[in-house]
Design a protein around this nucleic acid. Structure first.
Length: 236
DNA sequence: AAAACGGACAACCGCACGCAT
DNA sequence: CATGCGTGCGGTTGTCCGTTT
């Protein structure tokens, strides 16, 4: 597949955003939403590529962004989730309402990494690029992770002013045990089914074939622990 | 006072994936 | 089935700013 290079078109601006650009982007999205990031800058009259607009919105301009220092609880949550999930910043960020993957990633590299390295070895923090083939944890657990994250984000979004749903007391040690035993064996469809069953609702997945094997059960437990233990999927 | 240094954070880049055609 | 587009993600780079020398 040939991919069009982003932001390389003549006339597209790069670098820091100005207040005027921010204002244009905010008011455009407030008015029309962001159904198509690629078309958005043209429609809004911004000399930016869609990717840049998306990043700016998601990481900085979104109304539900929580600015300011990370709390102690948030730090601990990041550290623990990183032990379980590795460098899956979006997944970690989804556990921290109002925080973005970029923010979490930066915070990790500037604050937590050194501290964490003192305490334990970091098996999954390699800086080399990994394909989805050469790692047990898929780079993008697209179906389940996206849907879960969408679910999470939607939940948080719905009640954004109301709840901070992560529980700093989450027992990540348990998660790690389950992780080592079942995560690598699990399949995408298993995870999807797990989440469906766990939530007692259809979160949008398709496969309907039944699984009665133990890996499925382990998987179910694993994902249940991941998302219930860290607490964002509330028992709604 | 100014240069050098380093930390923090914003932004960019390239890849992988889902989906429509 | 093959192709291309749009998007999300993680790694990396760039820039700003405070601190040290």
């Amino acid at each position: 597949m040939v991919r069009a290079p982003c932001c390389e078109r003549m006339g597209l601006k790069k670098g820091p955003w100005t207040a005027e650009e921010d204002q244009i982007l905010i008011s455009f999205i407030q008015r029309y939403g962001h159904e198509n990031w690629r078309a958005l800058p043209r429609q809004a009259g911004l000399l930016r590529c869609g990717k840049s607009c998306r990043l700016r919105w998601i990481n900085y301009l979104r109304p539900d962004i929580k600015r300011g220092n990370f709390s102690k609880e948030e730090e601990e949550t990041i550290i623990k989730l990183h032990q379980v999930l590795g460098n899956r910043w979006s997944a970690i960020a989804s556990r921290l309402p109002g925080r973005t993957d970029n923010e979490v990633k930066n915070f990790w590299h500037t604050h937590l990494k050194k501290r964490s390295e003192h305490n334990y070895l970091l098996p999954s923090t390699t800086t080399t690029k990994r394909s989805s083939h050469d790692m047990m944890i898929p780079k993008r657990t697209t179906n389940v992770s996206q849907k879960i994250n969408h679910h999470i984000i939607a939940s948080n979004y719905q009640a954004s002013q109301n709840i901070v749903t992560y529980h700093p007391t989450c027992d990540v040690e348990d998660l790690q045990e389950n992780n080592s035993s079942s995560y690598s064996e699990s399949t995408q469809s298993n995870k999807e089914e797990s989440m469906q069953s766990i939530n007692g609702e259809n979160i949008g997945t398709e496969s309907a074939n039944g699984h009665g094997d133990t890996s499925f059960s382990n998987d179910m437990v694993f994902w249940y622990n991941i998302f219930m233990g860290a607490g964002t999927i509330s028992e709604s």
